[in-house]
């Protein structure tokens, strides 16, 4: 089922910006502050953490001009290998794929 990405939102771009810009701005500032916080950490043991690596790849999508950014960001964080695991390794998810 193809997504309807042509004029499917009833608000104008200006209305969307007026209503949602501040919320989106806050989220970007939080990401910037998080990255600065990592840099200020007492130890540098997380620079290559798979979650941060995935996050940096995901952020590249934000500058794309091609619709479907949300799907591509979600897939960046996803394990796309559908082979079954032989046995349970852990219960919880990390938010990004480790394999």
């Amino acid at each position: 089922m193809p997504a309807n990405d042509t004029k499917s939102c009833p608000l104008s771009q200006q209305e969307l910006i007026d209503s949602s810009f501040m919320e989106a701005r806050t989220k970007i500032l939080d990401i910037a502050a998080f990255l600065d916080r990592l840099d200020r950490s007492v130890s540098t043991d997380g620079a290559d953490d798979f979650r941060i690596v995935a996050m940096r790849r995901a952020m590249e999508e934000l500058n794309s001009s091609v619709p479907g950014r949300i799907e591509r960001v979600l897939l960046t964080f996803s394990d796309q290998n559908t082979d079954l695991l032989d046995e349970l390794d852990r219960k919880a998810a990390y938010g990004a794929s480790i394999r």
Binding site: L74, S78, N81, A92, A93, Y94, G95, A96
Partner: peptide, 9 residues
């Protein structure tokens, strides 16, 4: 359906 990175597969 599974959480987060496991949802797609």
């Amino acid at each position: 359906t599974p959480h987060l990175e496991d949802k797609y597969k």
